[in-house]
Nucleic acid binder design. Sequence first.
DNA 1: ATATATTTGTGTAACTATAACGCAAATTAA
DNA 2: TTAATTTGCGTTATAGTTACACAAATATAT
Lengths: 230, 230
Amino acid sequence: MKIKQEIYITVDAVLFGYSRESGISVLLIKRKIEPFIHKWALPGGFVKDNESLEDAVMRELNEEAGVKINYLEQLYTFGKPDRDPRARVVSVVYFGLVKPDSYKPSASTDAEDAAWFNMDHLPKLAFDHKTIIQTALERLRGKITYEPIGFDLLPAKFPFSDLEKLYITVLGRDLDRRNFKKKVMGLGIVEELDEKAPITSAGRPGNLYKFNRDKYQKLKKDGFSFEMNA
Amino acid sequence: MKIKQEIYITVDAVLFGYSRESGISVLLIKRKIEPFIHKWALPGGFVKDNESLEDAVMRELNEEAGVKINYLEQLYTFGKPDRDPRARVVSVVYFGLVKPDSYKPSASTDAEDAAWFNMDHLPKLAFDHKTIIQTALERLRGKITYEPIGFDLLPAKFPFSDLEKLYITVLGRDLDRRNFKKKVMGLGIVEELDEKAPITSAGRPGNLYKFNRDKYQKLKKDGFSFEMNA
DNA sequence: ATATATTTGTGTAACTATAACGCAAATTAA
DNA sequence: TTAATTTGCGTTATAGTTACACAAATATAT
């Protein structure tokens, strides 16, 4: 092609996980090449000439971490001229959610190490990755109220209070337990199971619940819109 | 740099305009180079090595059209390997709104022609630009309900029914005129002016109204959230 | 000139959703 | 055995939404 352009394109991913005990976590990898060698960074890498952007993120995530992704969407493209000291690099960043089941990052080939970090205790990060994580967190906050993506952070079966705690953590404000439950159950997409939740603390044992994704899809087609402000 | 990568990066812009008479329009330019020479396409072009993505869109818009942009945000990055017949091209697309005042595309240097097209009568478009416009329209629809971006499609002073018609057009459904007005005025960010609207049709003449952006910003800082479902 | 159609402005009543609570039941911890 | 904790279910007051009715001021048709 005629045009002279010296810009590289990468993909990165912000993967969020959640647990009742430690709240929201982010998956990071320890870089084993320069720049920022041995520093923590988001998983990602250069896009190959013939693969789509989505394929590129999925490949990198497999190579570097090996976790099962439950939800993935494009977040934002970061392109400030000086964000990479080596050269001009534009990064298309994806936003993903991982269930606790498939939480463990497996030993990987490309990264020195991969680990989940609590959002409140992030290490120093390479490049502009701190800003990127901030943007991703805002997306999570914004989106959880009008799309049922919270369930992509929980196991298939969960005690109701886990869902409630997830919303409290993500939204960063208190909710009325009773109103929250009424609202959620009223939507008709969460079902109570005939199964007791494993005991984790004092108090009356509760049931397990599950998200009925099929029902949500059906309702959505008929113009139903999820909303959780309670 | 070590990495071999043959991917080009461009920026494109979907600029929307609005008028009571013709509804929503999109700004298109007629290409004067291959591929798709003489075909209509979104304004845009290659990013220079040292300019930010935003600077690149603004530059291209000036070169090709010369309209004043009232609102601009990043929309999405399109990167399918075969979207450009020449080579692998990843395009970062921006979404913008233009007021009717600064509506006229001025004669430009880079494009053969630039013109506004009604959303319902778009010509055949180059590349995947039809899909891109569709995505942008969805963004407009989604965003107009929870951020006051509708005012970026109207002149500073407008008859109230223009705002109402804008929402009806964008949302694609009917609204109750009276409830809509109550809702909007109740938010406290639209002011009635002491000025009659110019007469455009039969019926009782109405006043002009204006959006108070300062007040909105102030309220927003205090946790106020715009919402228009009426 | 007069009647008709059109558009703006204001209001009210019924219904629905949200917010703020209380209390009993079933369990663990003291 | 008692206290603390957690779940489940319910009620009431308030706020918000929806569905209407009607008068006023103008252009248009007759």
